[in-house]
Simulated scan of single mutants.
Amino acid sequence: MRRILRRTERPRIRRRRHLQGRRDDGQANILLLFGMTIALLALTVLFVRVGFANDQRSQAQTAADAAALAAVSALKDSAADQLAGGSYPMPRYDEEIAESRAEDFARENGAVLTDIRASDNVMGRSGNIVRVEVRGALCQRELDPDNSRHWNDIVCEGEEDMSETSFGSASAIAIIELDAACGRDDDGLNCDGSPVGDSEEASDLFDVHLVDQEGQYRFDPNAVFGGGAIVDCANLGGLHPQMCAAHQALNDQFPGFYLSAGGYRDEADSDHGYGEAVDYMMAELGGTPTPAMDATAIQVIDWLIQNHQDLNVKGIIYNFHIWSPARDSVGPWESVKRYAGPRGSPTQDHVDHIHLSAGPPPFR
């Protein structure tokens, strides 16, 4: 007979016992700990790599600064020798010497020179501002955009051609400036009112330092300049015979009236490009003449105007003003000059020099 369960009774359910053995919790914790260790190790390596890259950049910048200053110092040595020898200094860029010095100083600071160029703010005539680029002798290329190198790959040494993503590249710009007012008097060349001593003393008159910007004009190695109390025609780049004759007459009449002289330049729209013009520097390039030098300039110009027919003078430009016999009347400079207008710099405006054109027309 079938038993009927009461409502208060419940059927007995046989419970299974848990299987005895290890649980998975501990193993998961070990794997998590191992993963975190690997991640921390990777981050540490990454930070080391980033720190190494920053060190490379800093080292490269130090090398670039040293290389730029060394390149400009090459101009300082020659300019000091000129000044001590009685010639007004023309710190003119010499690529071979400047590049050699820049390479040496870059190498001493753990870098390789990759580029060097010169400029100035005086129409490319001196190249007294030098810019260099260097890269570190050690580098990293793990961040190439095409993922061609693993992030932990460190290979690049010496002269190997590097990609644009190389670490350790830097540039620097340096300038040399004459930190004295120089002119000529009856006793010869003087600076700040005193005679110049030997090359070591003359060297102290120049300032070499880093700057943030290159010059306005790329250095023109074809520009011909001569220094000394008297500059011969042969040192001015093959002058036209009539220009050379006027130059010699000026030297005879006013010996040593200028600081230096500039002749031929490769300019098709100027008499300089035809050997029919000379610039007589009455101040340093880009500078302003002293009152005594300005007075001398006016005296020289008045004599040139008075003798323009004999000297085949085509035109004169000085201190924002111009004169030519074909257009203007003959007389003292102050009464016959006409305004030429500003061009942007003391050299372009002929503040620092007298421009004399002599030879066959036209006046260019």
Rank of each mutant, 00 (worst) to 15 (best):
A106W: 08
R23A: 12
L41C: 06
P221Y: 15
D65H: 11
C244S: 05
F34A: 15
D207F: 01
A70L: 08
D77C: 04
E142K: 00
D302S: 07
R265T: 12
G359T: 03
G85N: 07
P89M: 01
L250A: 04
T114C: 01
W323Y: 03
L189N: 03
L178D: 07
D25L: 14
I354Q: 12
V208A: 00
Q309C: 02
A71Y: 14
A106G: 09
V122K: 07
D302T: 06
D279I: 13
G263M: 00
R218S: 10
A170W: 10
I301D: 06
A84R: 02
Q27C: 04
V278E: 12
R57G: 05
G237K: 11
G168P: 13
D302P: 13
P362A: 11
I317N: 07
D186H: 13
A39T: 12
A102E: 09
E267L: 15
T37H: 01
P89F: 01
S199P: 04
A277K: 05
S87G: 10
R327A: 04
W151Q: 09
D204H: 12
A66N: 08
I301W: 13
L41M: 00
E95W: 12
N307E: 04
Y217Q: 09
G193D: 11
Q82R: 01
R7M: 07
L205Q: 10
H247R: 01
D185Q: 10
E95S: 11
R265Y: 09
A102G: 14
A170K: 06
N121S: 09
G331S: 11
D144H: 10
N222K: 14
R327F: 05
I230A: 15
G188N: 13
I230F: 11
E133C: 01
T347Q: 10
F206Q: 03
S203I: 05
L32P: 00
Q140K: 03
Q216F: 02
D161M: 01
A28V: 15
D179C: 10
A102T: 04
R117T: 07
A71T: 06
A84E: 05
V278Y: 08
A106P: 06
D146C: 05
A42L: 10
S260N: 08
R184L: 10
Y88D: 02
G273D: 10
G256A: 11
L189Q: 04
N190R: 15
I30H: 04
I116P: 03
D232T: 15
M243F: 09
L311R: 13
D104W: 07
A234L: 01
R2Y: 04
A64E: 03
A202P: 07
M90T: 07
Q253E: 12
S171G: 08
S73V: 01
L19C: 11
T290Y: 05
D352E: 00
I305H: 00
R364Y: 07
L40M: 09
V330S: 14
